[in-house]
C-alpha cells in the first residue's frame, strides 16, 4: 500500500513537468530567432526605379482604361480598388471631396481638394498637391509634394521636395530627397531630408564663424571633464571636447570646437556655437541664432530658438529627442526625430 502511495506521490510531483517533457520530445520550436537589420536596403524606401517601373507598367497595360482624355473626377470610390491612370491618357487627376479610395496611382499630377479625403495609398509619377484637412496614409510623389493646411500624414510620405503649408499633423514619417520646407507650424515625428527648413531664410552666425566651425579639425581635441555645474562665459572659445556632469550654460557668442556632453540641462545662449556633436541626458534649450555642426541628441526635451541651424550641406546629421519644440526659422540638415512629440510653432514662422 505504502509503495503504491509513494509512487502516486512521485507521479503527482512530476505532473507539472509533462509539458516540458513533451517539448523535449516533440521539438516544435527549432528555428533560430529572426534577427533585425537583415536586409541590405530598406524595403520601405521608394527608390526612383520603382516609379519608372510603375510608369512603364502603366504605359504597357493600363489597369483601368479611362475614356476621357482630360481631367477626371473621382467621387465616392470606396473599397480596395486600384485606380490607375495611364500616362499619355491623362496628365492630371482631380479627386472630389469626401472621397475614400484605397489606392491611387497616377502618371500625372494629382490634386486633392479640401476636406476629409481618406486615401490609403497615393502615388504620383509627377507631383501631388493636397487641399485642406485630408487624411493620407501613404503619399509618394516623384517630384513635388505639397501638403495643404491641416492634413494628416498617418504613415509615410516621400518626394523629391516636400512643402508643408500649414498646421500639418505628421505622426508618420516624411522623407524628401532634397528639401522639406515648412511654411507654417506643424506636429511631426520623423522628418528626413537633405535639408529641413522653414520658408524664411537666414544666415546663422557670421561668415567667419561658419568657416571656422565648418573646417574639419586636424588635431584630436583634448577632453575636459567637469564634475559639477558649469558656465562658459560670453564670447569664450573652448578648443576641445567638454563633458559636464551637471548643468551647463554656454554664454552668448561662445564657441565649443569639439564635442559636448552634458549630464544635466544644457542652456545655449544666443549666438553660441558648437562644432561637434551634442549629447545631453537632460533638457536642451537653444536661445536662438545658434549653430551646431554635429549630431544633436537628448533623452528629454529639446527647444530650439529662432534662426538655429544644425548640420551643414556637406554634413548630414541627426537631431533626436524625446520631444522637440522649434520656435521660429530653422535649418536642419539630415534627420529630425522626436520620439514622443515634435512641434514647430506657427507664431514665429
Amino acid at each position: 500500500m505504502s509503495v503504491v502511495v509513494f509512487f502516486l506521490g512521485l507521479v503527482m510531483i512530476s505532473l507539472p513537468f509533462i509539458p516540458m517533457l513533451m517539448e523535449i520530445v516533440k521539438k516544435s520550436d527549432l528555428s533560430p530567432l529572426q534577427i533585425s537589420n537583415q536586409t541590405l536596403k530598406d524595403p520601405r524606401s521608394v527608390p526612383d526605379y520603382v516609379f519608372w517601373y510603375l510608369a512603364h507598367l502603366l504605359k504597357v497595360n493600363g489597369l483601368i482604361e479611362l475614356k476621357e482624355k482630360v481631367s477626371v473626377s473621382v467621387s465616392t470610390m470606396v473599397g480596395d480598388s486600384l485606380l490607375a491612370i495611364p500616362a499619355g491618357i491623362m496628365t492630371k487627376l482631380d479627386v472630389a471631396a469626401h472621397t475614400k479610395v484605397a489606392r491611387v496611382i497616377s502618371a500625372g499630377k494629382i490634386i486633392l481638394p479640401d476636406y476629409s479625403n481618406h486615401i490609403q495609398k497615393i502615388l504620383s509619377l509627377d507631383s501631388i498637391q493636397t487641399g485642406v484637412e485630408n487624411n493620407l496614409n501613404e503619399v509618394h510623389a516623384h517630384h513635388l509634394l505639397t501638403i495643404g493646411k491641416k492634413n494628416k500624414v498617418i504613415w509615410w510620405a516621400t518626394a523629391e521636395n516636400v512643402i508643408l503649408q500649414a498646421e500639418a499633423h505628421l505622426p508618420g514619417k516624411v522623407q524628401a530627397r532634397k528639401e522639406i520646407v515648412f511654411e507654417n507650424g506643424a506636429q511631426f515625428h520623423l522628418l528626413q531630408g537633405a535639408l529641413i527648413k522653414s520658408r524664411i531664410n537666414f544666415e546663422s552666425g557670421s561668415a567667419e564663424n561658419q568657416e571656422l566651425i565648418k573646417t574639419p579639425s586636424t588635431h584630436i581635441p583634448h577632453k575636459l571633464t567637469i564634475s559639477k555645474n558649469h558656465t562658459i562665459l560670453d564670447q569664450v572659445v573652448f578648443d576641445g571636447t567638454l563633458i559636464v556632469k551637471g548643468n551647463l550654460t554656454l554664454g552668448k557668442g561662445s564657441r565649443v570646437l569639439g564635442d559636448l556632453k552634458v549630464y544635466g540641462k544644457l542652456m545655449v545662449e544666443e549666438g553660441a556655437q558648437i562644432k561637434g556633436n551634442v549629447f545631453s541626458f537632460g533638457n536642451i534649450r537653444f536661445r536662438g541664432n545658434n549653430l551646431v555642426g554635429g549630431t544633436l541628441v537628448t533623452n528629454r526635451q529639446l527647444r530650439m530658438g529662432p534662426c538655429t541651424q544644425v548640420g551643414f550641406e556637406d554634413r548630414k546629421i541627426t537631431v533626436s529627442a524625446k520631444s522637440i519644440t522649434i520656435d521660429g526659422p530653422f535649418k536642419v540638415y539630415g534627420l529630425l526625430r522626436a520620439w514622443k512629440s515634435g512641434t514647430i510653432t506657427s507664431s514665429a514662422l
Binding site: 527549432l30 528555428s31 533560430p32 530567432l33 564635442d259 559636448l260 561637434g276 556633436n277 549629447f279
Partner: peptide
Amino acid sequence: FVDPEVGSVMGRVVPLNSG
C-alpha cells in the same frame, strides 16, 4: 561613437544553431 564618452559598444548575440 558620435557620443564623445563612448569608449566601447556591444551588440546582441543570437544563436544560429539553436535547434
